[in-house]
């Protein structure tokens, strides 16, 4: 069982929902990322998504676009992100997931990237614009290296495709809550619960929900039926607005703690 699966299974057993914060690697530089990862883990992050910046991130809203631009200006590359993970891995138990675009990972070469990810201690990879059927060798290489290839499902995904995605994803299925790009939203679509139920009917793979979730209240609402909740832009905004590099780390950790609080089981109601 992979580290991600083990983590989500243990939480599910306790009646607890995973909090999965997203940060953009190298925003504003890799030094801050190096400080953020342990701080977020200590604040309650169960899995951390590390965005690998790309010049043309078509699925991102303005917040993460700006973070990617800052990271690229600071000289962040995939190789340097992998080195950072490798450095931190011995000190961190939290599962780490790289999220990025096909051109970043496949320019290195699918097999080489999979091997480098394993060597660095990356637990999972999300390739936003690379469907499973387009790159079978890449996905096979990730599987061979025991790196979980986490697939995305969307509100527009057909029933037939949903079954394929649920069957082939590793670690968890990432359910995109809305039709749109990443970014904090005041309102989330009401049909998320129903759509997650559709996935539950097809498979018992853990389902984590992301896109738009930006407050502890929203996280709590989604956490009632999802195995995990991903919060990206709202966290990246706090890092962006922080008065200093140190404040970026403490503000982000405080926010993660606030997001995680309602996701823990209330005392005495935990499933035995």
């Amino acid at each position: 069982m992979s580290r991600i699966e083990a983590c989500l299974t243990a939480l599910r057993r306790r009646g607890e929902t995973a909090l999965i914060p997203f940060i953009s690697a190298g925003d504003p530089d890799l030094g801050v990322t190096e400080a953020l990862l342990p701080a977020l883990a200590a604040a309650g992050a169960d899995v951390i998504e590390i965005g690998v910046p790309f010049s043309d991130p078509v699925a991102e809203g303005p917040t993460i676009q700006r973070a990617s631009e800052r990271a690229l200006r600071a000289g962040t590359t995939l190789r340097r992100v992998l080195e950072l993970v490798k450095t931190l891995r011995p000190k961190l138990d939290v599962p780490l997931v790289l999220m990025g675009y096909g051109n970043s990972f496949l320019t290195m070469g699918g097999v080489r990237f999979a091997e480098a990810a394993r060597e660095a201690g990356v637990d999972g990879v999300i390739t936003v614009d690379c469907p499973l059927e387009e790159e079978p060798e890449y996905y096979e290489a990730l599987a061979a290296c025991d790196v979980d290839a986490i697939l995305l499902a969307a509100p527009t995904t057909s029933e037939k495709r949903l079954a394929t995605l649920a069957q082939n994803t590793r670690g968890f299925l990432y359910y995109v809550s809305l039709t749109g790009v990443t970014g904090a939203r005041a309102e989330l679509p009401p049909e998320i619960e129903e759509n997650v139920a559709r996935i539950r009917a097809l498979s018992d793979v853990p389902v984590c929900v992301g896109f738009g979730i930006s407050t502890p209240e929203q996280a709590a609402r989604i956490g009632k039926f999802a195995d995990g909740v991903v919060v990206g832009s709202a966290l990246v905004e706090r890092i962006e607005r922080a008065a200093s590099r140190e404040a970026a780390v403490t503000d982000a950790a405080d926010f993660v703690a606030a997001l995680k609080a309602p996701l823990r089981p209330a005392r005495g109601t935990g499933v035995p």
């Binding site: 614009d129 469907p131 509100p155 527009t156 995904t157 995605l165 039709t179």
Partner: peptide, 22 residues
């Protein structure tokens, strides 16, 4: 059938857009 011109082409889009391409 999958939109390949040799090794090029394909459908490298975020999941939300897959149904629209189909």
């Amino acid at each position: 059938a999958a939109g390949r011109f040799g090794s090029y082409g394909g459908r490298y889009v975020p999941e939300t857009l897959i149904a629209a391409h189909e």
